[in-house]
Design a protein around this nucleic acid. Structure first.
Lengths: 119, 119
DNA sequence: ACATTCTGTAAGCATAGGCTTACCGTAAGG
DNA sequence: CCTTACGGTAAGCCTATGCTTACAGAATGT
């Protein structure tokens, strides 16, 4: 999806990471989170909106209290994205290793890397 | 580790995501990446330094060319981090569902949520 | 009704950081 | 050597955005 950058940006911020870590144990309200963080309540509220827009948290309103909880599905998506990148990295590495060894069977005079780059 | 925020910050930037995506297929040089991206070569160079510091890419110098490749180990670490958060989210959810259903066995007069918050 | 509690929103500020241009160093090739 | 290719670094600009204070709104309890 194109909103992956939005997802990653929301996920990476240090304060939002702290919020997400607090939500790992249980759902919490805005004030509850603000009490445990070194930033003001409005700041937490704003971060929660970002996280909600990114789909990383869900909101459930009960009276005046707004409970926020982690969204496992969205986290799974993020994990899959990283996992795909990890698999490609492994494949690229083994592929490179194979070519490197085949090229080094005998002492070669040709370079293992190109001398000129096509532009 | 405490450098996880550094890792996440390095990983999340849109341009760096584009760089990482290009490196999924094969190792590349700075100029090669710059040709395929809408930013200047120095910008790519700076991003690569950030990625290298975060451990997401490795550098191999051959002559004047600096080849960069993805670091699967670091990607695995990142995946594990997300995976742990995902597991906690699932556990918190099922735990919440259990408490909710046990509290709703009969129509109750006490609130399912607290009226006052301990401060 | 009124006060209290819990929250979202607006405005403004200040720092971080991404990008560009200019410059310098290094390696390779003729 | 001298030139060319390739890349890192410095300085500066400029936008994004995280944070605070102040204000407004909705739900609850007395």
């Amino acid at each position: 999806m194109a909103d992956r950058i939005e997802l990653l940006g929301a996920f990476a911020d240090p304060t939002r990471q702290a919020v997400l870590n607090l939500l790992r144990s249980r759902p919490s309200t805005v004030g509850e989170l603000a009490d445990r963080l070194p930033v003001s309540r409005p700041a937490v509220s704003q971060h929660l909106q970002v996280l909600k827009t990114a789909g990383l948290v869900d909101e459930e309103r009960r009276g005046t209290r707004h409970y926020f909880r982690l969204n496992p599905k969205r986290l799974a998506e993020l994990r899959e994205h990283i996992d795909g990148m990890w698999r490609d990295a492994l494949a690229a590495f083994s592929n490179f290793a194979a070519k490197e060894s085949s090229g080094n069977d005998k002492r070669r005079k040709t370079r293992a890397y190109p001398t000129k780059r096509s532009r």
